[in-house]
Amino acid sequence: MTFEEIKDKLSHFKIGIAGAGGLGSNCAASLIRAGVKKLVIADFDVVCESNLNRQFYFADQIGVLKVKALNDNLLRIYSNLDIDFRVLKITHENVKELFQNCDVIVEAFDDKHEKQMLIESVIKYLPNIPLVIGSGMAGWGDNNSIVTEKFDNLFACGDKVSEINEDLPPIGPRVGIVANMQANQVLEILLGKM
């Protein structure tokens, strides 16, 4: 496929992104660059200084709602996008309404309880929509521990074990690797294998 054909094909799909932090903001940028035009992105948080080490935001956006800032940043990559951004906290109750028209859903939360809530909600309410999650990306180095594993129509990207703590913070490179692996997995789901 030429890049023109790839862009054309991807432009017809809608991708749901749950969370606009390190995974969500970078995954969204990567998908948009590849040719995706339609996104649903939900997050309730605002950009803060500590986000700038890994999230696709800029110093002059501190205090701005993440979905608003992300919308602005994505439109600076390509201007003809159809981004449905929602300022809300994703819960068990609204997952179905939010993402039911999406072709693939990307789990992009930070907290493991939220990850579990989203995964269980998608399995329960939207079992036919492929879900791409991220789990295990704290710290630095150890490139080759980061993998993707398929379980039914759930795809898990990450090293599966390294959890964030004070001495193992989330940092740009590993979070970005996993965010881009998620985007790459979305492309494989939508375009088929190379």
Binding site: K112, K115, G134, A138, F151, V161, I164, V175
Partner: peptide, 10 residues
């Protein structure tokens, strides 16, 4: 059986 292990970070 699928047992998916989740850790925080993102």
């Amino acid at each position: 059986v699928i047992v998916l292990h989740l850790v925080s970070g993102g």
